[in-house]
Amino acid sequence: MIRGRVWKYGDNVNTDVIFPGKYTYTVTDPAEIASHALEDLDPTFARGVQPGDVVIGGRNWGCGSSREQGATCLKYAGVGAVIARSFARIFYRNAVNNGLPALTCAAAVDALQHGDAIEIDLDAHVIHSAVGDFEFPPLSPSVHGIVAAGGLIPYLKTHLAATGEAR
């Protein structure tokens, strides 16, 4: 179960806004990466986000560059999930690789407001809030497994060790 508060933003938020490109090659420490999350869009985000909080975006969340730092900085900041009307394909893949649930649910995007408390049940594929419950499409079994493992690398390490394929 993911529990947190909503941080709500709009359409076409690109990866350079999620994690400023000027830090791409100079910032590598996870805490410092997290400290720059959404700084150009919302300077209060990195200081105010709490573990489990949820980012809500509009259409085409994570468009732009293929750099993985857009998803990585949110994960390092403690974001429990991102909910949007739609995701740029590369952001979605980077989120999954980081073990960060990327959920599409237009009804939740429309109804939820900044600061609302929510709970997300990935197994039941439902978002619970004071303004209602919202179903979202279930994650595929492979994506659910990667997210549950905490990302693609932990998933592969566990899977390969379990099958005796680890070297």
Results as ranks from 00 to 15, higher is better:
Arg3Leu: 03
Arg3Gly: 00
Val6Arg: 05
Trp7Asn: 06
Trp7His: 15
Trp7Gln: 08
Lys8Leu: 10
Lys8Cys: 08
Asn12Tyr: 14
Thr15Cys: 09
Asp16Arg: 05
Val17Ala: 13
Pro20Gln: 04
Gly21Arg: 02
Lys22Phe: 03
Thr28Cys: 02
Asp29Gly: 01
Ala37Pro: 03
Leu38Asn: 00
Glu39Ile: 11
Leu41Glu: 06
Leu41Ser: 10
Thr44Asn: 10
Arg47Lys: 15
Val49Ser: 02
Val55Leu: 12
Gly57Thr: 06
Gly57His: 11
Arg59Pro: 01
Cys63Pro: 02
Gly70Cys: 04
Cys73Trp: 00
Val79Pro: 02
Val79Leu: 05
Val79Trp: 00
Gly80Trp: 04
Gly80Asn: 08
Ala81Val: 10
Val82Arg: 13
Ile83Met: 06
Ala84Asp: 05
Arg85Met: 05
Arg85Phe: 05
Arg85Cys: 12
Arg85Ala: 13
Phe87Ile: 04
Ala88Glu: 00
Ala88Leu: 02
Ile90Leu: 13
Ile90Thr: 10
Ile90Glu: 03
Ile90Cys: 05
Ile90Trp: 01
Asn94Gly: 06
Asn97Leu: 09
Leu100Met: 13
Pro101Ala: 14
Ala102Cys: 13
Leu103Tyr: 05
Leu103His: 06
Thr104Met: 14
Cys105Ile: 06
Ala107Gly: 09
Ala108Ile: 07
Asp110Cys: 11
Asp110Gln: 14
Ala111Gly: 10
Gln113Ala: 15
His114Asn: 15
Ala117Trp: 01
Asp121Met: 13
Leu122Thr: 09
Leu122Gln: 04
Leu122Ile: 13
Asp123Met: 05
Ala124Asn: 09
His125Pro: 00
His128Met: 08
Ser129Asn: 10
Val131Pro: 11
Gly132Ile: 13
Gly132Leu: 07
Asp133Ile: 05
Phe136Lys: 03
Phe136Pro: 01
Pro137Thr: 08
Leu139Met: 15
Leu139Thr: 04
Ser142Leu: 15
Ser142His: 06
His144Gly: 11
Ile146Glu: 08
Val147Arg: 04
Ala148Val: 05
Gly150Trp: 13
Gly151Met: 03
Gly151Leu: 07
Leu152Met: 14
Leu152Gly: 12
Tyr155Gly: 10
Leu156Glu: 09
Lys157Met: 12
His159Arg: 15
Leu160Ile: 04
Ala162Met: 07
Gly164Ser: 12
Glu165Asp: 12
Ala166Met: 14
Arg167Thr: 12
Arg167Lys: 14
